[in-house]
């Protein structure tokens, strides 16, 4: 017996079905119109322009949350599925083809970039928050640097203390060669975003491989360094995830605004130079 659908799943299926149905109807009607010698480019062009403008309002709503215009979640749902529908309109408008001229390319590339960045944004917002919960306590983005500095300082202290107390430089030397740089700045951002953990395993294995060269106190120190490495890795994960969640918007939103501007110019040119149709 299949597990009952969650509310999120039902919502996704419902919204996805509506968007897919709308896209299918649009493509079918456009096909019928084209085969009956009706020029759909102006209709689909206007639909696309209106859609992009409406989608841009989501950013406005996000920036002004106090406006009584519905919940952010509802806006987000509309934005996502209207965006998918806009892709269908775009493909219909362009005839599922590549651009032929420079100006068409200047329209095509931003739209594709906005669509891709939006899709990435959806994925980031769906996956990363859940993953962040699995990587330690969530730190505020602005405090990550300070927390990383605290960890780096403690690791440095442990390394210095190890050399001073045990007359062995094994731990201090390893810290100097490998861990010092690791604790200084965020690392392995791409691995964090893709869910790859090999770098952490290798780092832990290297530290644990030093146990044979140190005494009991030294092993305590190494265990602590392992904990600090894991803590630093969680911080890096937090940093990478939160950075991604911020950066994609810096791509998506300005490109969408630029696209809106280019589309407006395109509409004027289209009406100015339409001939004999």
């Amino acid at each position: 017996m299949a597990a009952p659908l969650t509310g999120f799943a039902r919502r996704r299926i419902r919204n996805g079905t509506v968007a897919a149905a709308a896209a299918a109807v649009l493509v079918a009607v456009a096909h019928l119109a084209e085969t009956t010698l009706h020029d759909t480019r102006f209709v689909t062009g206007w639909i696309l322009l209106m859609l992009i403008a409406a989608l841009a309002l989501f950013e406005l709503r996000r920036r002004i949350p106090v406006l009584p215009l519905g919940t952010a979640s509802a806006w987000e749902q509309v934005h996502i599925y209207a965006g998918w529908f806009a892709v269908a309109v775009f493909l219909t408008h362009t005839g599922f083809g590549l651009p032929d001229g420079p100006f068409e390319a200047a329209l095509w590339i931003p739209f594709v970039a906005v669509a891709i960045s939006g899709t990435v944004g959806i994925w980031l917002n769906r996956v990363l928050p859940r993953r962040m919960r699995d990587h330690g306590a969530r730190e505020l983005y602005d405090r990550i640097a300070a927390r990383r500095a605290e960890i780096a300082a403690e690791a440095q202290t442990l390394a210095i203390a190890s050399a001073r107390d045990t007359a062995s430089i094994t731990i201090a030397d390893y810290y100097h060669k490998e861990l010092s740089a690791y604790f200084q700045r965020p690392r392995n951002a791409l691995s964090h975003l893709t869910g790859y953990h090999g770098h952490l395993r290798r780092q832990i294995q290297q530290i644990r491989s030093l146990h044979r060269y140190v005494d009991a106190s030294g092993r305590v120190t190494l265990d602590r360094l392992c904990e600090l490495v894991e803590a630093k890795d969680d911080l890096d994960y937090q940093y990478a995830a939160q950075s991604a969640l911020r950066i994609w918007l810096f791509v998506h939103v300005p490109l969408a605004h630029a696209l809106l501007l280019l589309m407006t110019v395109h509409a004027v040119l289209a009406y100015a130079f339409v001939v004999g149709s």
Partner: peptide
């Protein structure tokens, strides 16, 4: 980004190569 786009649009619309830049295709 908008400033850059607006600048490029102005160049495209008023430049000497506007015929080539605005052409929707050969």
């Amino acid at each position: 980004v908008l400033v850059v786009v607006i600048g490029l649009i102005m160049i495209a619309l008023t430049g000497t190569d506007r015929e080539a830049l605005l052409s929707p295709g050969p």
